[in-house]
Design a protein around this nucleic acid. Structure first.
Lengths: 235, 235
DNA sequence: TTAGTGTTCTTTGGATCCAATTAGCCAATC
DNA sequence: GATTGGCTAATTGGATCCAAAGAACACTAA
């Protein structure tokens, strides 16, 4: 029997929490831990356990869990408890179709407004990705690269949705990147995209972006299909 | 001094609430009341008041409020309480730009899959709107009409976002419809749109939809500008 | 009269307690 | 030997209690 390490132990607490903002601190901490993947999906979130961990009563934990549930980061069943929500279920095609729509538009709106500083920052992300080995950091840099390119789009609501999609992908990559060698072709896409964006070639940029996303989707879809058949064998 | 009727009295409770699902019932009830406009934005949500109203303790109310906060239907300030979130702030242009993007795509995907039954249902909505005077019902019918046309789009996530936008508009209309005679031109738009959709003319339908949304946005924008200058005078 | 201050009252946030539901386990029986 | 029954332990959900923050108000002093 393999030892099952408790994922909650990956949550680090820096000193005692000021009492009057316990709930918000707990919510933030847990959300970050879920998004960057330290809490794998399926992890059970026991109220008492979390309360002891944070050094408070169950009360602020309960409210934090409710908020995370409303953000669909947790699945909660009455009298059974909360577990970290699954990543991308059977709808990766839908997810990526939506991302293409949103990110294409964001890119279209943003390109004309991008400054040299923005482009430099995007390039810095690519260069950093070149040598980075830590998956958490890779996910962060990937998200940052894309957000820099979209960031000047004058529509905050659109950008919020885009960032949501990227967060979801970041979470997914963190777990599955090593299982599917996406890294190199992804970097080529990034360089090509940046070059087109720098030349303000809007439609060509969008086309490259769509291909980039399409590739990501296909990799994930085949990966998920693989898991599925493996599951079947296991059953 | 004018009598200030408590908006909470508009919430009807049908008998005592089964104890074990208090929180979910409260959350549902409040969300519906916010969305269909019985609780105007700015309404203060006192925990004790709601608890008495529902015949429970403050505890389930607190959790329900947290969830509604996470859905950005409430604005909560620590130690001050929750108020119903404002409808469309200074970003109606952004909101409508996003709606155009999402609903155009939904319509594009849905049209080829619409059945005669769908079209009949959409027409029924228009006819019902013809004579309807109650704003709550007008909002509901308007939303339903649009959702029927989009509904066959094979992307559940896209449809969820679309419905979110429509809910927001429904809330807004409920308050401001009488202040801005949008009703008639809106009906013309609806009929034209339905006719084009029935002929499966995808791009023409989308163009009509965009014009329809554009008109809505302009009406709201000028209305809000009016409010603004009125506010200034009031100060 | 008005500005400032101190007090009280309201309201939210956290802790603790109790009830209700679920899961696991063991035994009894078919 | 397998299955079903009830019992116990674990966990969540709701109620109540207490502390802390904020708002309203009255009182005092200039």
């Amino acid at each position: 029997m393999t030892q099952k390490p408790n994922p909650l132990s990956s949550i680090k607490i820096s000193g005692p929490i000021p009492a009057h903002l316990a709930r918000s601190v707990i919510e933030e901490t847990l959300r970050n831990a879920i998004l960057d993947g330290r809490l794998p999906c399926g992890t059970a979130m026991r109220q008492q356990e979390l309360a002891s961990l944070f050094g408070v009563s169950r009360m602020p934990v309960r409210e934090a869990l409710r908020q995370l549930e409303a953000q669909s980061l947790l699945h909660v069943v009455t009298h059974k408890g909360a577990v970290v929500a699954p990543l991308i279920e059977d709808n990766s095609a839908e997810t990526y179709a939506l991302r293409m729509l949103l990110e294409s538009e964001a890119l279209r709106l943003s390109i004309p407004l991008l400054t040299d500083a923005d482009l430099a920052q995007a390039e810095a992300c690519i260069n950093a990705l070149e040598s980075e080995k830590d998956y958490t950091e890779i996910g962060r840099l990937n998200r940052l690269f894309h957000m820099v390119l979209y960031g000047k789009a004058p529509n905050q609501r659109l950008l919020t949705l885009v960032e949501h999609g990227l967060n979801e992908e970041e979470r997914f990559l963190r777990f599955n990147l090593e299982a599917m060698g996406l890294g190199e072709t992804s970097q080529e896409d990034h360089r090509e995209l940046l070059s087109l964006v720098a030349q303000k070639k809007v439609e060509e940029s969008i086309l490259t972006l769509r291909n980039h996303l399409m590739r990501g989707m296909e990799v994930i879809a085949t990966y998920l299909r693989g898991l599925e058949s493996a599951d079947k064998k296991a059953v």
